[in-house]
Design a binder for these strands. Structure first.
Lengths: 229, 229
DNA sequence: TAGTGGTCTAGACCACGGA
DNA sequence: CCGTGGTCTAGACCACTAA
């Protein structure tokens, strides 16, 4: 076993980045590559499959494999639990429940999550602090039709996020990042002035076609989401 | 071949989400699973490997496989070329070069990219329009030590991004998302008022330990980056 | 040191889809 | 149609690491 799938991946990646393999250009078939690398087709297959997953190459049955014209490279961002994110940075984490109410789902939420007119939700507002300073504001809505237990939890001690991941299954998640102006409430909680630019994450969670929860996370000024590949 | 690796993935995922497999709990070994599913170990291996890649489970040699305590789920965001993003939405794309200069690298950039004191760069400012309205502002710096050809390209016709992906190899990319206030220049170009919250992406590209380029992309008001998994 | 995951092999069958 | 990638198998050896 002298040739590993990693060797092949690296070799092909180099050929692409150095220009030996041109974007849009066709590559040899797996059988041919296996022969030229002197290994089994399965080994070549794994290398090529991973390159395809990473968006470097494009594969089609019969048509073969070619280098992507526009490398639609995908970046992976880890979506951590706030508490872990803060503790990992060495800071002390503190959670506070600001507001809790059980209510009929407002129209915008019903539309967003596809709830029916009778839909009831738990609405929570909470804050996450790092070393005593505001870190993130959480505005969460939990669908009681899917998660009735949420009605009897007061969420005064721990974040709804941590309760949800442990208590409720989910199959599908939508995430959106964008920038917002701080309104009076956010400015107050996050310790900035009104109108400041804040980074916001919205996340909808679904289980079996039914909405489980929607959350809007607003981070303190200057927050960045970073990754590398 | 009745049991596929997809079947196994789905089955295990369901066992986790429904609570049949508890977070932190140990799972059977690959050999045992292969027997109980009635398939080859390689099939189980592929299912488990993908679950591990997705951050659902955690694997260690000898120690075995266990369900992740805190599902550090990672979301994939595609980083498209602006032109493709706009054209895919059905709008007409237009590019404009605002400013071009060859100059010594400013201190903040030298520090950021690890350039030496003699480092020279091309500084470009450009705009991307969708159906004639401002879509994204691009502020780009290209390291001439790595990419000398950039000095003789005027970038008046096509975006530096498209030129770079075709002309320069890269091995490492760092991306950061955050929110900024529109300053006078950005407000002017993007057609909003000063102080508005804008979504900004910063990206550093490296090749073989040397910085290739740095770019700061500012999107028009209301821009969102979205994904689902 | 022994058990578990990581990987490779040689061969096979199949599904897709371009020609 | 028929070449290409997608996947499975049965078996093997190896690398890591907890016990």
């Amino acid at each position: 076993m002298s040739v590993t799938y990693r060797d092949i991946k690296a070799d092909i990646f180099n050929q692409i980045t150095t220009g030996a393999l041109a974007p849009g250009g066709a590559m040899p078939s797996e059988v041919d590559l296996a022969e030229s690398y002197g290994c089994a087709r399965a080994t070549v297959n794994r290398a090529m499959r991973e390159l395809a997953d990473e968006g470097i190459i494009e594969r089609k049955r019969k048509a073969g494999t070619r280098v992507r014209m526009a490398p639609v490279r995908a970046a992976r961002f880890e979506i951590p639990i706030v508490r872990h994110e803060i503790e990992k940075s060495g800071a002390e984490y503190r959670y506070a429940l600001v507001h809790r109410a059980v209510m009929p789902a407002p129209d915008w939420l019903r539309a967003r999550l596809g709830l029916d007119a009778a839909g009831r939700v738990v609405h929570l507002t909470c804050m996450h602090y790092a070393d005593g300073t505001p870190y993130q504001h959480e505005d969460r809505w939990i669908n009681l039709a899917v998660t009735p237990d949420a009605e009897h939890n007061d969420f005064s001690k721990s974040s709804p996020n941590e309760w949800l991941v442990a208590a409720v299954p989910f199959s599908n998640v939508q995430i959106s990042f964008h920038a917002v102006q701080a309104d009076a409430v956010l400015a107050d909680h996050l310790g900035c002035t009104e109108g400041r630019a804040l980074f916001q994450t919205e996340r909808s969670t679904w289980w079996d076609e039914k909405a489980v929860a929607f959350v809007r996370l607003t981070s303190r000024e200057g927050h960045r989401v970073t990754t590398q590949y």
